[in-house]
Amino acid sequence: MEPILTAVIPVVIIGIICAAVLVIASKIMAVKEDERFPVIRECLPGANCGACGFAGCDGYAKALCENSDTPTNLCVPGADGVSRKLSEILGVEFADVIEQVAVVHCAGDCNKTHDKVDYHGIESCAAAKLLYGGKGSCIYGCLGLGDCASACPQDAICIENGIAHVDTRKCIGCGICTKTCPNHLISLVADVERVVVTCSNKDKGALTRKVCSNGCIGCKKCEKVCPLGAIKVTDNVAVIDYEKCTDCPDFGVCAKNCTTGCIMISDLSGMHHYKEKTDK
């Protein structure tokens, strides 16, 4: 017999036997996969941002399949559209998604505050923070080197005049930037029109005043004028409780009365509300 045949035939026979065993085994021990899984996974945006609290879109889809208690409104980037689709597939009641956008709690740009050192180090907020709390005179404020901007999956953050700005029309509310800011200046708020405190300086009024003309000096004027009692000055900085700050009878009174102007009225309507507005 040809040597090539004596080599090929045994290998082919062994291969066929192995294949037969595997086919039989996979038939006998087949595992049924939830047929809803690919459908649900298809609905999700696939950004794997982790805003839902699960490990990526696959994790959320799996949780939805396996556990019927999992809420369908956890996907913030997907918003109402995704929630509606999910509730249709799973046959549960539609739950409204609270769309969120990121807000930077610092407005101390180059016109309002000044640098204390000339920083020539690594272009990263985390690195600059290690060196005497950053280059700016306010150690609580935005470092302006754009760690949040590079972390943002949607390019929604840009650095302008030395501080970070969020483009709420691009922001999907995943919250990745809130974790990267070394000064924890960014938080997520519901994307309807709101007042925002744009300062996080926890020093006493006089000290704050020295370093930034936009800083909250903790004068408590806003506390007194707020008709809903939603503003509280804690650690020398005003904090708005957004659960109480709804349907304000005298909207914007806090911003008008703010001594330094650090409470601002901003249009935070994100991509979803913006679309609705333009559709109308």
């Binding site: 080599a7 045994p10 062994i14 192995c18 294949a19 065993v21 085994a25 021990m29 595992v31």
Partner: peptide, 23 residues
């Protein structure tokens, strides 16, 4: 043919183990 035959057999066995474990 030792290496190729052995790898073939091992691959099939690992697949078998995987099917069993998955089930």
């Amino acid at each position: 043919l030792q290496t190729i035959v052995f790898i073939l057999v091992i691959a099939a066995l690992v697949q078998l183990v995987e099917i069993i474990l998955k089930r």
